[in-house]
Design a protein around this nucleic acid. Sequence first.
DNA 1: ATACAACATGGAGTCCGCTCCAAGTCAAGC
DNA 2: GCTTGACTTGGAGCGGACTCCATGTTGTAT
Lengths: 127, 127
Amino acid sequence: MTISEVSEQYGLTADTLRYYEKIGLIPRVERKKNGVRDYQEEDCKQIAFIKCMRSAGMPVETLLRYMSLIRQGEETSKERMGLLVEQQEILLKKRQEMDDTLKRLEDKIACFKEKEKSKKRQACGCI
Amino acid sequence: MTISEVSEQYGLTADTLRYYEKIGLIPRVERKKNGVRDYQEEDCKQIAFIKCMRSAGMPVETLLRYMSLIRQGEETSKERMGLLVEQQEILLKKRQEMDDTLKRLEDKIACFKEKEKSKKRQACGCI
DNA sequence: ATACAACATGGAGTCCGCTCCAAGTCAAGC
DNA sequence: GCTTGACTTGGAGCGGACTCCATGTTGTAT
């Protein structure tokens, strides 16, 4: 797969894909004779995972650690799991926060609608 | 309330509070004779809201717009509600994504545990 | 043959959201 | 009277994660 195909498929710009390779988040991608990148299935799997974790807010730094552990083989699996569990905890907390914010938004929006309906234009308690 | 009390209460640094005031996210806070900030209840309400929206990922730019609409009075309420609804949609989408990621993490972690239990050290399909 | 688009590279620049700094003021305690 | 600590200001600096740029090479279409 070319870089533009991968870019298309995973919603990452070509620049970002090159950047990830440059910083070693993914190993050096194979090139064709002419020097053009030719992404293998394994690369794509990793990119999918990276994309997923990045959009969930895992820092590049942590991913870098994780991907390097993968390359070091099976004996690092405990440490890798640790990283995943850590991230899981972070995400669960984030989701809780998000739910609180959503509740707050809902209330506010409901309050706007209420005002609209009753045609009363006074300010309500919420800012 | 002094800046350090507000900072304490809402988990924002004094620097961040001054920064929010500087960029006009909150209106100029009242000062005591000696020039020290004295936060009023209204300021605190706004800060609570800002903190909440910021940690849910609403960009400062959007909040700036929202807060400026508030200052313009009741006739902007429709536009304000629009911003909130927009943000709500963004958050709902984000939460969906987050749930997908959590699912993925769970699966991976389960996979690690499985491997551990069965004492088989072979790689599993997931990266 | 020439034009064009898609790629490559190394390195510089950008954006966001703070965070830190230097220099100064002030109130309270010793 | 002096030190200490919490505050003030304007402005510079920073970290993360890209994003853009200049320059160069290729393969393909006209």
